[in-house]
Amino acid sequence: MLEIKCPYCGKRSQNEFSYGGDASVKRPELGKEISDKDWDDFIYNRKNPRGKHSEFWHHIAGCRQWFKVLRSTATHEIFKTAKIDEEL
């Protein structure tokens, strides 16, 4: 069981949270022509790294805020958490 530090509530158990995907993926700019490959990369293609990975998490049973987590996919160690508009 992970202990995740919500930027708003503090350290809480993992079962209060829900994983929300890769935080490094950027949505293509609105109204701009983009290739099928760029759209594919945004929707489907992920890197699946072994090591540090920036992720979105949702404190769904707590304050219901989205935030970012920098976590190791190998050891599950959590290095840092940040509010959604902050840099990790």
Binding site: C9, R12, N15, E16, I60, A61, G62, C63
Partner: peptide, 10 residues
Amino acid sequence: CVSTTFHGIT
């Protein structure tokens, strides 16, 4: 006060 889960119920 705290918002949490009890046996999976928020």
